[in-house]
Design a protein around this nucleic acid. Sequence first.
RNA 1: GGGCGAGUGGCGGAAUUGGUAUACGCGAUGGACUUAAAAUCCAUUGGUGUUUAUCCACCUUGUGGGUUCGAGUCCCACCUCGCCUACCA
Length: 1003
Amino acid sequence: MSETQKYDHQSIEKKWQEQWEKQKLYATKDDSSKKKFYCLIEFPYPSADGLHVGHPRSYTALDIVARKKRMEGNNVLFPMGFDAFGLPAENYAIKVKKNPADITKKNVERFRLQLKSLGLSFDWSREVVTTDPEYYKWTQWIFLQLYKAGLLYQKEMPINWCPSCKIGLANEEVVAGKCERCGTETGKKNLKQWIFKITQYAQRLIDDLDTVDYLKKIKTQQINWIGKSDGAKVQFRLKDLKYRINVFTTRPDTLFGATYMVLSPEHELVEKLLSEIGNSKEVEKYVKASQNKSDLERTDLAKKKTGVELKGIKAINPASGKEMPVWVADYVLISYGTGAIMAVPAHDERDYEFAKKFNLPIQEVISGGDIKKEFYTGEGKIINSGQFDGLNSKEGIKRITTWIEKEGYGKAEVNYKLRDWIFSRQHYWGEPIPLIHCENCKEREKKTVLIIHGTGNYGRNLWYGWLADELEKLGHEVVAPDMPDPMEPNLDTWLSFLEQYKDKLNENSVIIGHSLGGVAAMQFISKLKKKIGKLILVAPTCRDIDWKAYAKKHPNDPTEYQHKFNQPDIPYDQIHNNTEKIVYFHSDNDHYIPESVPKHYKKVLKADFRMLKGRSHFTILNGGAFTFPEIFEEIVEGSQMPVGIVPVPEKDLPVELPKVKNYEPTDTGESPLAGIKDWVNVKCPKCKGDAKRETDTMPNWAGSSWYFMRYCDPHNAKEFASKKALKYWMPVDLYNGGMEHTTLHLLYSRFWYKALYDLKMVPQPEPYQKRISHGMVLAEDGKKMSKSLGNVVNPDDVIKEYGADTMRMYEMFMGPFAEAIPWDTKGILGVRRFLDKANLLFEKVKKSAEFDRNLVHKTIKKVTEDINEFHFNTAVSALMIMINEMNNQKEVGQEAFEKFLLLLSPFAPHLAEELWKKLGHKESIHLSPWPHFDSNLAKDEEIEFVIQINGKLKDKSMMPTDVTEEDVLQYIERNEKIKKLISDKQVINKIFVPGKLLNIVVK
RNA sequence: GGGCGAGUGGCGGAAUUGGUAUACGCGAUGGACUUAAAAUCCAUUGGUGUUUAUCCACCUUGUGGGUUCGAGUCCCACCUCGCCUACCA
């Protein structure tokens, strides 16, 4: 064959691409009587390097699916866009001193051209670019809806900080202590951050996976990332101290085996206890040292455990009653559970190692191992655990948890690894967060909340701590002091202690008094010379309680002082004068406070009484809970939004990025936007006073968390997408992307979609019906393609030399779609030869020529089914077999050839269209119906029937597919070879598999 | 350490519910065409042995066992590699 026998891919491909575009062949119409099919592929980040050969692999695969679905009569949505915000463009902009917007625009144009040269059937009229203000207007709008729904808060916190990129990183972006992007070791920096309450959705993000069709490993990854564990929260008393240590454990069955406790270095108690311990200097030194350790050091030195004992501090094991030493050690992480553990060295690897190193007692409580030699984490019989001895450990978990709850030491609890999503970025190239900080509004709305705790407790313990955190998330000022001598309180001491907070209080303030603190609160308010907003009493005590009787009933509780507590008459009139409103919470099962108490207060207090069910005395004791949303609600009065932070009004969206001279992030951690005075200074939309814009921008994840919704209605100027369009197109029927996005992008976008579903803005709770993943394309050496290794293959070169059709087919043929496959430039030749053969075969086509119907229908069946299952490589090989068979004939029937072209058209759309038109068709092949197969015709009439002896192949012969056992046995009678082989042996059995084989079992 | 997945020719890889292992392609070798090369076409191509006629026998899907008439496929143990994850209490 000469050069002229190779088809001219350049002119053919250019011609059809132009014609298709002119005819708008792939434009999708919304209102259609046809069944919809939404086929989605992750949109690319338009890097300066251009398209990678990995991109076309998944694009072609989904293009094939989309084209086939279209030919099968579906209304297909197959869109494409660009995810263009983010660090690479910004870093490049800084390097070449240009505007990232200009750079991005250029990159997008290049990408679009490259994608178009592949002949993909995207509906380009629906393209979205996340950096386009018309697009990010709606990203900001959605952000505001979620903000108004109370899903965001701001908190000063140590964030992961990359000293090289000068950017805060989400936990998820730090891989093994290193910056995901640049590989530099990360440190910590304290910054105020906007944070999404994704943890609120943790359970639903797990549960709803049951309703969707994702690859198993993708579901597993999602579940693992959320990391749910069932266990119990248990409270440990400290000997002679008011403080308590809360721990989370998944092994309550080992409670009796806890021999020491460990606090993480960041735990608040470490600082509080410093004055009580003998070796405070040593402890301080240790805490400081571990703060300076990077996450990498703390995790990498996995096996070398360090720690310091808090000398003089003893915790009490509520189960065994034994005293236990308390340590601080950085193998306990502040970010998981409560930041403290009960250590059970006999049945936990880490605790065992620690106990061995520091010579701490090891107490076996589950039999089955040999704890002298090794820890034992398996199941077994419970021993050394009093009343629980003899139980199976699995049963023990349930029984001991129930006992803990009954005795008031804790409660069953679920814990998640997933942490809230840090959303702020201190960078230029991202969507501005559309919020305005207004000091006037803040002063007006901010509440000062004074929490006065009860006996034997401290300021931020239990629900006080939870409530304080929640209020601070909204920007309120919380004063939750540790009251003096809480074990033996004295009213006068308490009142004089509270004096210091007097000046902070005003008509907007709230005072919460719990238990004994309730009495203190009333006394304190009655002496104020001003009015406060609200008094919230939570199960307050009262001198009416018979403390002597109580002490008899509860001999272990240190309540001696209670009846000594000085309670002069409370001047109720004065309290009413000094408060706007009083709310009184009590519980129907408070065994601490008799019913006579609320009865008494009902008589004397003009309060709003609220009865809550089963909250005991509002503490962990006796099964109480840690969170009391009712009390929280009473303070914020329905406002879920942080105070003094005003959403930009919808009519002012988008908040566009201003042009700046300098894109570099600052060393202070502020975004470069902070330096642009004209932009930062605005009037508050609420009070019209002077205010400032938020200068943080959104992370790269924002735009990609909802782009699939915008595709449904991309030009809508009034809504992010119309209800009608969303209802028709959503959910996505097929979503494909890389494994690298199966945790974060999927989790974040599912979270946004669920939140919008709760706001009734989208039609269902899950965005993606089916999710599959593609494998990576590796370099010829089997390594990842990278510039530094110099092994990158440029798709433009391949397309220029061999054509887009060849490129597409080769990417499909190279191996299983889901697996990583190395690129092989020589392998492309085989596919190109196949297409040349197809082109040449056209000369042999005769309208009237006979053809092999079985071959045609077999191939239709194979290709159809393979595409359905994403087995593109074997579909290509079926087409190759068909072409080879047809090539062996002198003439080719036109009908057979047409069917071949139809099957070829999703893979090689240009050549298929060229030959289709050359056959005389007026309409595009891509608008033609997908061929059907006849199952009977797809079956072979004759097969190679196999004769085995003891399962080993001895003979084969062509026979009809439906050959009977008798016929085969007769055949054997006539077969000298088989007869000879079995002549001297005893035939025990004959197994006949219809249409396949006969196995003769001999001895 | 945990989770998921994979080990099949010289290479990429095929193989329905257990039923002819190595489809399809690359590469290689030989031949045709050519002054020659490229391209193309034809033939051969898992291994070993015997025989030189290419008929035959045996072996072969990481290793070792097991279940079965029959195992690449199912079960058990082990080895190797890849990906994700990691002091998650």
